[in-house]
Design a protein around this nucleic acid. Structure first.
Lengths: 245, 245
DNA sequence: TCAACGCAAGTGTGATCACAAATCAAAGTC
DNA sequence: GACTTTGATTTGTGATCACACTTGCGTTGA
């Protein structure tokens, strides 16, 4: 019975090797498109074609069309009656709609998380606060992409603690939908002068640290409302311009 | 310039014809699978294969695999590491999770709807109440499928009035996820004796009629909690049985 | 007797082709 | 000159094939 020995041997091998996984092309395409959408690499109303994306991603059309189908069901993309697909356009109603849904669901998620986070988990998000300051210190080079990524990690690190396998995918879907809008707002932000995202994040962490669910929810809503409110104003003045012209 | 005349002619023709649309096979497969899932035709933990479904639906594998992919991203189905796909199994945590999410989001939707519904819309859902009683009158033949369909129509008729294009797809996704669980509960219900769904629906309509958002929310939560609570008890006693054995 | 091996059927994934619909541009018509 | 028509190109959809992986069962070996 040297079975135990073989078992041990296999375990030591497993400990040395990093699992390569068996990610399909379709999965890679899907995450790549997700990343692009949340990061705002696509503009609202931009039309996407299967063959175009397949060329850009250097694959065949097959994985792309399945990934697009999945993104359409998540409302991250929009299927036009022409059967072509585009990034959903920004409208005032949609902005308010998205903000309300995000406040509701992400607010619930952080309230749940506030009651469940342990010291280690709080320390993790606190550390991300430091990372943010660090990045801000060398502000000569504004790296909007890096800021967006860090912001996303911060939020989802918290949401992951809410213990709900149902809410988190919904939040991801909401980020996917608001990604293109938000990015437009962020660009406008950095033109219009600095905003202290770090301040909002600090008050979120403070509320979490004292397990104050209500305060955490309010701080979070304040944080996510900012770009939406900014975008809303921008859109309203733009439409007034349009009316005048 | 007889363009206007042609236009008019086309319009009169269009008024007579019912649009056949240009629904793709993929769309039909997708809605069929949705219907089956919400209706609970698939059992939790049941494994589905692409070729099997393609045979059952009399199409090729192509539309089926895309539909399955979409359902997986909505968490209506689950992708196993083996790359096979199954209906998500029922667990206690999942039941609580789904109920919490549904209470939160559908509660918000009905609260919004309460403030927005006009007399005609309220009359519509009131009429559905009557339809329910009618069906119940000839209760000799319990048609669970018909009850489920009517229940779904009732709820979504209300939700559609909330004016949010973001919330409604999320609610659909939640129904898709809870469909298989609920159906198990409903079957157990009808064994365990009658429950007065109509009573809950009546109090929902009453609250909507007097635009009482809070009452509507509470009545709704009571309505959707019932099968979940029932299922929860059933599962708990079953697991106790399992432990004893 | 039982575990390990190996073969065969079944399954998901990706590529390619055929086809229909949409789009765009140039030529034609009033 | 404005509008329609026609033809070429582009695009999404569905079918089919090839390949890799998994699974199940029967055989082999100790």
């Amino acid at each position: 019975m040297q079975k135990a020995a073989i078992e041990r041997n296999n375990e030591t091998i497993a400990a040395q090797l990093t699992p390569v996984g068996r990610e399909t092309v379709q999965d890679r395409v899907y995450s790549e498109l997700r990343r692009a959408l949340i990061g705002g690499l696509f503009e609202p109303s931009q039309v996407l074609t299967i063959r175009g994306l397949a060329d850009a991603l250097v694959t065949s059309t097959m994985p792309v069309r399945e990934a697009l189908g999945r993104l359409i069901t998540e409302k991250a993309l929009e299927a036009l009656p022409n059967r072509s697909v585009r990034v959903p356009p920004i409208t005032l109603e949609r902005i308010d709609d998205l903000l309300r849904a995000r406040s509701l669901i992400e607010g619930e998620a952080i309230a749940l998380a506030a009651a469940r986070m342990n010291a280690r988990q709080i320390a993790t998000v606190e550390a991300m606060l430091g990372e943010w300051d660090e990045m801000r210190a060398l502000k000569h080079k504004k790296d909007i992409d890096r800021e967006a990524t860090l912001n996303q990690s911060f939020h989802f690190e918290i949401y992951r603690c809410c213990g709900s396998a149902v809410l988190i995918p919904m939040i991801e879907s909401l980020w996917l939908q608001s990604g293109p809008c938000i990015r437009v707002a962020i660009y406008a932000f950095s033109d219009a002068g600095e905003v202290d995202t770090a301040h909002y994040h600090r008050s979120i962490v403070a509320a979490l640290a004292r397990q104050d669910a209500q305060a955490a929810r309010e701080a979070l809503v304040a944080d996510i409302s900012r770009p939406f409110a900014f975008l809303r104003d921008k859109l309203q003045s733009a439409s007034k311009e349009g009316l005048r012209a």
